[in-house]
Computed example of a mutant assay.
Amino acid sequence: MKENLNNVDDFARLTKSAVGLSKVSNAASKLATGAGVAGIGITVIDGLTSEKGWQNHHTADVLIGTAQTLLLGSGPVGWGIGLTYFVADFIVTSSTGKSITENLFDK
């Protein structure tokens, strides 16, 4: 038979567990947001130093990266969306030699 949460120790133990999970989630969100900002920075550097100069896909990548970074900071749903785009872009790049945005926006 399950015991009811009727004493302070049980409540304190559950509260500590919830706080611990929250700290892990916050740390993961900060790490993901940092990675997103780094990715945007890499895109900007690539666009500024590319032989062909800044192209339409750079603008699209910065916009998508910004949206993803905002979503990545929001938790598991944002992480799922970001991971899905990352995998899709990896598959497209592996198959065509160009990223999703290069295929869509560059001639």
Rank of each mutant, 00 (worst) to 15 (best):
S94I: 09
S95W: 15
F86C: 03
F105W: 05
T49K: 01
Q55W: 04
I81Y: 10
D46A: 04
F86I: 03
T69N: 03
T93R: 11
A32C: 05
L83N: 09
G36E: 01
N103P: 11
G97I: 14
K52I: 11
G80T: 12
L63W: 09
F90P: 12
A67W: 08
A60H: 11
D89Q: 03
S74G: 07
E51W: 00
K98G: 08
V37M: 03
H58W: 07
V37C: 04
H57K: 14
L83K: 07
I40Q: 03
E51T: 01
D89I: 00
V37E: 01
G97A: 08
T96S: 15
G47W: 02
V62H: 03
G47Q: 03
Q68T: 11
I42W: 05
D46V: 05
D46N: 13
V44S: 04
L71F: 14
T93A: 14
D61R: 01
G36H: 00
G97Y: 10
I40A: 01
S95I: 10
L71P: 13
G53C: 06
F86A: 01
K52Y: 13
G39Q: 05
L70C: 10
I42S: 05
K52P: 10
S74A: 13
F90T: 14
L104E: 07
G65C: 01
H58K: 05
S74W: 09
V62D: 06
W79K: 01
A35C: 07
G82K: 01
G39P: 07
L31K: 02
T59C: 07
G34E: 06
T66F: 04
E102S: 02
G75C: 11
D46I: 03
P76E: 11
W79V: 04
I91W: 09
I45E: 10
T93F: 11
L104I: 13
T69H: 04
Y85D: 07
S99W: 06
G34D: 05
E51K: 00
T33L: 02
T33A: 04
T101D: 14
I81P: 15
F86G: 02
G47Y: 00
A38P: 10
F86W: 11
V62N: 02
Q68C: 11
I42K: 10
G34W: 02
F86K: 01
Q68R: 04
G80A: 10
T49Y: 03
I45G: 07
G34H: 01
K98F: 14
S94A: 15
V92S: 14
N56D: 12
D61Q: 13
L70Y: 12
A38D: 11
V77W: 15
T84I: 12
G78E: 05
L71I: 09
V37D: 00
T96V: 08
N56C: 14
S95Y: 14
Y85R: 07
G97M: 09
Y85V: 09
T84R: 10
T101F: 15
N56V: 07
D61Y: 03
G53L: 08
I81K: 09
